[in-house]
Write a protein that binds this DNA or RNA. Structure first.
Length: 299
DNA sequence: AATCAACGCAACCGCGAAGAA
DNA sequence: TTTCTTCGCGGTTGCGTTGAT
């Protein structure tokens, strides 16, 4: 088929589509409560998939695409929206540094989060910083800022909020109730200057730095018992995965400590826990630190 | 109180891949 | 093998909300 014929065919298809759209009076824009209920009820009875026919059979005046998006991003029972945790922020930064804008891939490691939400988080929060620093989000400068300032800061804050409630690794709370995927969940384990900490019950990914945070290994733990066993036998190194499991009080990561001493300690003040409870604008503070480091050429 | 700009997020769009016919 | 349909992803848009003036 030559280009002209192909073009005519495409145009014809577009006309057909326009006719169908007009005939069916396809709706666009925000979903109503009634539409949501219709979609939920239909999927509860018939299951998801085959979105175009689903849209027709459910009597929804929407495209299959629109139905799929509404279900996956909003109506799905296990979807979580808003309040992205510190652990999740850290994970997004880490995974994005590895894979770039592979939002759906990143979302696989944050159960309940959609690719759309992660993408929005990146655009609104992360790119905002790049914009304010007047540098490109893909520039080495900005990547270094994330690597050496933002991520360690997140680790600090996670530590601050968790060491109060988790004194030993044996208190790990296993969250293992995701029924929709074959992933199983465990707590988040990460390195910090004081050893390894374990995060809240909502965490679901193991992060285990070997030298510094940005080199950490990330994997979904697939065996709850194994994780518990590893955690109770302090300082366990899994040679297969490269994951290290350790006790809060016993693990020390010297290379990270050295890097931290040289690069972060002089820059980031040692705030007490209460510091974060007084309404300080941490984004503003972070930007100040970033600008200071950039000005001094400290990377 | 009114206006405007910035922000956050839901929804849409275009494209390529995969599968079906 | 070719064509068509459907799906899923990443990029983009538009609108409601919020905060500043």
């Amino acid at each position: 088929m030559d280009d002209k014929a192909r073009s005519l065919k495409i145009n014809k298809n577009m006309e057909d589509f326009a006719d169908v759209e007009e005939e069916m009076e396809l709706r666009r824009g925000p979903w109503t409560v009634e539409e949501d209920l219709e979609l939920i009820n239909y999927i509860a009875t018939h299951g998801e998939g085959r979105w175009n026919s689903l849209a027709r059979c459910a009597g929804l005046k929407r495209t299959g695409k629109s139905c799929r998006l509404r279900w996956l991003n909003y109506l799905r029972p296990d979807v979580r929206r808003g309040n992205i945790t510190l652990e999740e922020q850290l994970l997004i930064l880490e995974l994005h540094s590895r894979w770039g804008n592979r939002w759906s891939k990143i979302a696989q490691y944050l159960p309940g989060r959609t690719d759309n939400e992660i993408k929005n988080y990146w655009r609104t929060r992360v790119q905002k910083h790049a914009k304010q620093l007047r540098c490109d989000v893909n520039s080495q400068l900005f990547k270094d800022t994330m690597k050496y300032l933002w991520m360690p800061r997140l680790v600090e804050r996670i530590q601050a909020t968790n060491t109060r409630s988790v004194s030993t690794s044996d208190q790990l709370v296993i969250n293992n109730n995701n029924n929709n995927t074959n992933m199983e969940h465990c707590g988040l384990i990460m390195s910090n200057p004081n050893g390894y900490i374990i995060t809240s019950e909502h965490s679901n990914v193991a992060v285990s730095p070997s030298s510094d945070l940005t080199e950490c290994h990330v994997k979904i733990c697939s065996d709850q018992d194994l994780v518990e066993q590893q955690l109770s036998s302090h300082n366990y190194l899994d040679n297969n995965s490269g994951l290290m499991f350790g006790d809060v009080t016993k693990m020390q990561d010297e290379s990270y400590l050295n890097w931290y001493e040289n690069n972060v300690n002089g820059i980031i003040p040692n705030y007490s826990d209460s510091f974060w409870n007084i309404g300080y604008d941490e984004d503003f503070w972070l930007l100040q630190q970033q600008q200071q480091v950039i000005d001094n050429g400290n990377f």
